[in-house]
Computed example of a mutant assay.
Amino acid sequence: MPDASDGAAFFAENCVACHGATGQGDGQNADDLSAVPTDLTELSRRNGGVFPAARALSYIYGDPQQGHLARVMPQFGGAMAEDLVPVEIDGVFTPTPRALAGLLFYLESIQR
């Protein structure tokens, strides 16, 4: 099962350019984007103190309510769906791409 350190590695490889090394939305590419990158350290605070795992996973994987042209962030679905692990989300074990499971654990660990 992946853990927060696996997610930190995925974050460093795929997310730092926009969200910054600490996840606060201050990456080197942030100023060049049409939308300000989300401060990922405040997801829980903006959700009543609870980490919004289902919403975060939906957005990262590729929110079906948002077409790919309506968002700046890339969708991380596709081939990832071939390596799934069970992650408890809202009390239900949900098949989740291994890389994104680690990322969820990492994001939860950096909440302020």
Rank of each mutant, 00 (worst) to 15 (best):
T38F: 04
A17T: 02
D39G: 08
A35G: 00
V36I: 14
S109C: 05
S109K: 05
P52R: 12
A4S: 13
A21L: 12
E42F: 01
G27V: 08
A101L: 11
G7S: 07
D3K: 07
L43S: 13
V16C: 04
L104W: 06
Y61T: 02
R45H: 05
G77K: 08
R98Q: 15
A9N: 07
N14V: 04
E42V: 02
P52D: 13
M80V: 04
R71G: 11
L33W: 06
S58E: 12
D3L: 01
G77Y: 08
I110D: 01
S58A: 14
F93N: 13
G77R: 07
V50Q: 10
R55E: 14
H19R: 05
H19K: 03
M80I: 00
S5E: 09
F76P: 01
D32I: 11
G62C: 10
Q24D: 12
R112H: 09
C18H: 05
D63C: 02
R55A: 15
V92I: 14
Q65T: 15
Q65F: 10
Y61D: 09
S34L: 11
P86M: 13
L103W: 05
R71D: 03
A54L: 09
L103P: 07
C18A: 11
L100S: 02
Q66H: 12
Q65E: 14
V36Q: 15
V50H: 08
G91T: 09
Q66M: 15
S109T: 12
S34N: 03
R45C: 00
H68L: 04
M1Q: 07
S44W: 05
E108M: 07
T96M: 07
P64C: 13
